[in-house]
Design a protein around this nucleic acid. Structure first.
Lengths: 203, 203, 203, 203
DNA sequence: TATGAATGAGGGTTCATTCAT
DNA sequence: TATGAATGAACCCTCATTCAT
């Protein structure tokens, strides 16, 4: 018996899988996971609904792979930043910039994450979401706390509230940001950082 | 003969309707509109799925009424603020504070709005959403522009980006804010305003 | 919240359930469980396929209930026999007669059991099948052993082989026996017993 | 140009066909024809589902060939017996013994036959099943009748019932008989014959 | 007002089969 | 000979909705 019964597990023709996942991600992002039928995905891919099941186990497994791929790359980027051992302000700037780059690269996945994560956490299959959220929170809280200790961030703010403020502020941008628009990810990151760090009030 | 065919339009027992809408809103907010079956709503209300149709035309009409009620009250609050003809900074502060109060009062509706609005805009029945978004954008942009003109807001920021920044920053809070928690709406508003206006960096 | 959300669990209108189960059992027996579509069952019942799901959780749950009901009644009959504490030969005669009566009452269920049991044993949901098989074997083996000890059954036979011989001989009859035919269950039982006990050779 | 389009009909590599049919028969017997997917067969054969179609026209044609091969050999054996023109009791003994030998050689096919024949009879492609059943019935009934006429079988039994009794009793054994077990086919045949002819009661 | 039972459209998934390579 | 990818029909099941009672 050969070892690659399931094409899902084989390394053969990974480009097709990847293409299909991109298509699926776009439809999921556009219409929402629940409202997306596998037939719509298949239509976009130019095939019949049943044919998707040659490549994937289920609609849910597509969702899983989309989110997993995104989070893997996100953490790869974050880890590169964190390994640099920058100061808290520079870390925050680098993380925000990296976040906008990820939005740029994985906009559909980010939008899906935003909309669906809450309902998915709690399903064993999506445990990696909760795990990522824990690491995420820890990373940001630590950075903020270091900043407060170092005197580069304001000490009079509720730190958890600040965490949520920064986190949300950055990631919701995925809901309107369109790659290829007039602002590059770095440009938007710079402006956001300016607002987050210094506020919008004139001094 | 009085109108009796469509109880939806009658004034009979409006408290029951309201109760049911609250129940529905909570389930919609918890699980998402698409993932919510009318049976789940009925379960929460202690009745059978079919019975809901005595009170409402359809699942969609519940959604519509929930969002409409929320937006009506939101605009009622905003209009009160706007009628005061405050300066731009004070207007912004008052709008943000009012927004957190609405989150407090209509948390499920806000969460539903956030998640579903994009897919609903474009359906005739939900034209009021687009209308509200237009007014919303105009109100905020005007306020920001006045502030820039008056020198109370920084002039070096992209004003549309700033608008999105402020808008999103406030409303995503609905995704984690729980009424009755340790922070009141006004308290949270104050902290958010402090961050939005002055930033999180120490001066 | 009412306690009877699931009509499956309520005692209301059990006749409808029972009717539907009879219909399903007949189709299962006629065509085999796998080859039977829920649509066929619904057709026979004069309703649409989806409507069956108001009464039952799944096609499999219908199968389960059919088999469980049959085995419950079978054991009820067997237990009555066994409680009489008859001699081994009389016990065997009574069990065989009772078996034919059950075939008479539950012919479709018996046919389904015969065809599907092997594939179902091993599924947790159908554990009661294995349990029943164990009791069945024990009951028959004990009876045969007692008979050999008492000298009413031949001692020169492999007792397990004899058990299978008797067991199969009786139950396969379900595949051709039609209730309402020219032979009553008792009549057939009598002839079978005559063959099983004394053989078909002239003395 | 030799026939090359339909390898099914060619004599090329008949061992591979035979191997594949054995594999298929085992899976059919194990799980049932309907529940067996061609992919399962292919898995067992170490190939992909589509590849089977180089060897066979369809899943159904595999089933047909399995059953046809079995019945051909069965009748070949029976005919040898019948050509001997033995007395009725010896004929019966020889047929039963031959049947157990066929179970030994074609256990999967026998099991498939038992489970599926009823649903297949009526399809033109499987007319040979009905034909075989007719010959089978005639052969046994004739033998029994001769036996009664000669006084070697009991005259007080319903002859059709006796026919079913003997037929079923022998063939169901395929459901539990495992070749290579402790009893040889001849051994089992001898014990069965002893029970069928003389009964299980002590004299 | 609410229930019980049904409808009917559609959704995710399976699977025998095809076919270019 | 066998593979990889796709087809298309059918299947089980869900669910918003209806309606007589």
């Amino acid at each position: 018996m050969p070892t690659k019964k399931k094409p899902q597990e084989s390394a053969a023709a990974p480009e097709r899988r990847s293409e299909l996942l991109h298509t699926a991600a776009e439809v999921f992002a556009e219409q929402g996971y629940n409202a997306t039928t596998v037939r719509k995905i298949a239509d976009h891919a130019g095939m019949l609904a049943g044919s998707l099941y040659y490549h994937f186990d289920s609609k849910e497994s597509m969702l899983e792979e989309i989110l997993r791929t995104f989070l893997d790359e996100l953490w790869s980027g974050y880890d590169t930043v964190l390994d640099d051992d920058l100061g808290p302000r520079e870390t925050l700037e680098a993380l925000v910039t990296e976040s906008f780059r990820e939005i740029d690269r994985h906009r559909p996945a980010v939008a899906i994450y935003q909309r669906e994560a809450k309902a998915l956490v709690g399903q064993e299959r999506f445990d990696f979401l909760a795990e990522s959220q824990r690491r995420f929170e820890k990373t940001w809280l630590t950075t903020l706390e270091r900043g407060v200790a170092d005197g580069v961030f304001r000490a009079d703010l509720d730190i958890r509230l600040t965490y949520r403020f920064v986190r949300d502020t950055v990631w919701v941008a995925a809901s309107w940001y369109r790659p290829g628009g007039q602002h590059s990810a770095e440009e938007i990151a710079r402006q956001y950082l300016s607002m987050v760090l210094d506020g919008i009030a004139a001094r």
